[in-house]
Amino acid sequence: MRRLLSHMWPVLSLLPLLAAAVMVITACAGNVRVEGPSVEERLQEAEHQVLPTPQVSSRPFLEFEQYRLLQAAAGGIEAPPVETYVLTRVDDLTAYPCSTCHVKPLDELRAESEAEGQLQHWEITLNHGDESTLTCETCHNVNADGEGEDTVDALRTLAGKPVEFDAAYQQCAQCHASAVEDWLGGAHGKRVGGWAEPRVLQNCADCHNPHDPEWDVRWPAVPPKDFSRGRGGGP
């Protein structure tokens, strides 16, 4: 036994050190965790309570916005649980109503403006889907010749039903159903005014150019400060 010990002493002398290390590691691992209720527990607790409605409103910050109640029933859109408003579009359009000019068939109008050498809507290039999927007529009722259902002053669904410009999200919802679902839920798009009631959302076309929905590649808004030459750019 003595002989064994005398041979083993380097290993044996390391044992207490090892034990200490293990203790320190486990203690650290135990200490890192911060104890306290989780957010989930707090939310579950709140479900069983009657909470006061926060006495705060977004209204003062919506003073300069124009918005309308969401038109949910049409376009297969399910109404969200809270009253939802959407920014109007018509006041943003530069050439509305369309019927100011579009009173004749499109071919005639085009021939006229070609004769004048002054093309209309020249700034619009359709870069959305491809030509076999989307053309002007897919969304715009360019050959309309009447009032009511067949008006040129509204968009047109794939099935030929009119959609007001203010409710253009219904038009988008035909193809982008999941994006619209996220938009209504709150995971897509932007709220206007504030987090408090009323809930006002930006319309699809407030962020996405419907004719060219691809987002920009651009430079960031803030350059990093250069500290290589002493103090960074400041006064």
């Binding site: 957010v39 707090r42 939310l43 709140a46 909470l51 926060p54 705060v56 409103s57 977004s58 003062p60 910050f61 709150g186 995971a187 897509h188 798009g189 932007k190 709220r191 005014g193 504030g194 987090w195 408090a196 962020c207 987002w215």
Partner: peptide, 23 residues
């Protein structure tokens, strides 16, 4: 506390930021 959104949420052009009342 006035009911508005944080400045970062308002400034984000992509809608990547969402803010609200968890309760």
């Amino acid at each position: 506390r006035q009911g508005r959104l944080p400045a970062c949420v308002e400034a984000c052009p992509t809608g990547a930021r969402v803010f609200g009342n968890l309760l």
